[in-house]
Structures are given as C-alpha cells and as structure tokens.
Computed example of a mutant assay.
Amino acid sequence: MKKQQRQGWGPGEQAQQHYLIEPRALAGGGDVRHIGEFLRASGWRDHSKPAGPLSMESPDRTFRIAYDPYLLPGGWTIHGVANGNEDEWWAHLGRQTPVEIVAGVTDALTRPRSAHAPNVWAPLQEQHWRTPPNAEHHTAISADGSTWMQYHQTPDGAAMWWSGAQDGQGNGWTAQFSASTPMHLVQAFSTALASTEPVMRPLGRVPPSTRIRSTSVSVLPSQLSAWQQARLNAARAASWARNTARSTGPRTSARPHAHTGGTRTRH
C-alpha cells in the first residue's frame, strides 16, 4: 500500500491507530511511563532496577511510589512518612487502575498544596454521581454504575477510602487509601476519577468490555511525542521554579516595581 503524505506530517510518518476510551475508569492500566517519566522530570529519585518494578522517591524522601505488576494482586503502592502534624499514610491502587487516574495522586505529590479546604465529594457531585440513601457507608456511584467512591468505616473505628470500577465482565480494579491520607490527595484522586475526559489507548490495548465507548483516532508518532514532551516540560518547569524559590529565600529589601505595559469514528 502506498504511503499517504498529508500536509503537516513529518517525512515518512505514518499515522497510528489509537482509541479514545470512555469512561476512563474502564480503560485499563495504560503506560506506566506516564507516571515514572513525570516524576523523574520533577526531580524524584529513581530506584528502579533494570527491567524491574518502578520505584520512585521524592527529593525530600517523604513520599515513595512503587508499581509492581509481578506480585499478586500487583499494582501501585504510595506511601507517605509521618511529617510534622501529618501521620504516616498509604494507598494501594490495583494494576488495572488507569495511569491517568493514578497520576491524579502522584502528580499532586509534586505540587504545593492548595490553600483551599479539600472536598473529596465535590468533583463527584459536579458530575452528578448519585449517593444511595440506604448505603451502609457514605458512597457515591457514577451515573453509569460502573465506578464508585466510598468512605468505609468499621464498627471498631477503623476507616479507609475505598474506590474502584467494574464492568460486570471481570474487568476492573479497586483502590484503598488509609484514613490518614491527606485529604487533598484523596480529592486529587476523586477529581481524576470523575473526569469525563476520555483517555487514549493504542490498538491492541483496548479492554474487551461492552461497557466502554471507543472512538478511533489516527495519531502521528510526532504528535504522541509532542504531547508527552509537553507534560515533561511542565514538570521540569515546576521543579525549577520550586528549587529557585528555595535557593533564593526571602528577600530582605523591597524589589522595585516593574511596569508591564485526524478523523474520528464512533464505535
């Protein structure tokens, strides 16, 4: 078949078939590099062994993130050490948790905390998730019934956040957050979970589920590279800004005022 050359394409580039998947919670795990490369660009230490599980540590050594697909049940482990007024905390997210949802938490670990009080339920309410009136634990369920978020508390006082997605055909995942997990991180997770933005998967990596909607798109390798690079550039810029702010410290004198005058096919 003769290669087609379109305006704006690089020399010799061929479009690759990908799919936009909705709902994102049922899109499958995705590419672990989406998280690992972002953390490296943010200045995190990479303790991963060659061809082994992902293992990352924050620059100040207060957070650790690991992904191990080889152990059962496998998946993501996020751990925070006791720090100041915050207790030690942990989170476990299953192997099929989409990396875009995991990144809701891991990206948030690289950013300064917002001054606004966190609200885990707000992103879910904005997307019209329903709250069963007779549920034993406070629960929110997506409109299509495939995804949930729950604050689970036992009679003896033990508590945790529990979430997940199931399609009724054996595909799905669960996630647990300790009760001591900082609330802004749980909200970052619920925001990514509730997002209606589809996620992209390459040909051959679309889950065999009747509950998902897929849109076929033609994507150039240079486009994929540019999107990935933009994410890494943003991480490097934020890391540089944080390091610069720490190294300069507070100023003792006032600074002079500066005047500033491809075709889609729905399946």
Rank of each mutant, 00 (worst) to 15 (best):
P59G: 02
P59Y: 06
P59T: 02
R61Q: 14
R61I: 01
R61G: 14
T62D: 13
T62F: 11
I65H: 04
I65A: 15
I65N: 02
A66T: 13
A66W: 04
A66C: 07
Y67W: 15
D68G: 00
D68R: 00
P69V: 07
Y70W: 13
Y70L: 07
L71I: 10
L72H: 12
P73K: 00
P73Y: 06
G74C: 05
G74P: 03
G74K: 02
G75W: 03
W76L: 03
W76F: 14
T77I: 09
T77Q: 15
T77P: 00
I78S: 06
H79Y: 14
A82D: 10
A82E: 14
A82K: 04
N83L: 05
N83Q: 14
N83Y: 05
G84E: 03
G84V: 03
N85Q: 12
N85H: 10
E86W: 08
E88H: 02
E88Y: 01
W89F: 11
W90F: 13
W90H: 08
A91P: 01
A91G: 15
H92W: 12
L93M: 15
L93I: 05
G94K: 09
R95Y: 12
R95Q: 14
Q96I: 00
Q96E: 15
T97N: 11
P98E: 10
P98N: 09
V99H: 05
V99A: 11
E100I: 02
E100C: 04
I101Y: 02
I101K: 01
G104Q: 01
G104P: 02
V105C: 06
V105M: 00
T106F: 01
D107K: 08
D107T: 07
D107E: 12
A108F: 07
A108K: 02
L109N: 06
L109I: 06
L109E: 09
R111T: 05
R111C: 03
R111H: 10
P112C: 03
P112S: 11
S114L: 06
S114C: 05
A115G: 09
A115I: 01
H116L: 09
H116N: 14
A117M: 07
A117R: 12
A117H: 11
P118W: 05
N119E: 12
V120S: 13
W121F: 14
W121P: 03
A122C: 05
A122V: 06
A122G: 05
A122Y: 09
P123A: 06
P123R: 07
P123V: 07
L124W: 04
Q125A: 13
Q125H: 12
E126F: 06
Q127S: 09
Q127E: 14
Q127V: 12
Q127A: 08
H128D: 15
H128I: 03
W129I: 04
R130C: 08
R130S: 13
T131H: 12
T131R: 06
N134F: 10
N134V: 05
N134P: 04
A135S: 15
A135H: 00
E136V: 07
H137A: 13
H137N: 15
H138C: 08
H138V: 13
A140L: 08
I141Q: 00
I141N: 02
I141L: 07
S142N: 03
S142Y: 08
S142M: 06
A143Q: 10
D144Y: 09
D144G: 04
G145I: 02
S146A: 11
S146F: 08
T147S: 15
T147Y: 02
W148Q: 09
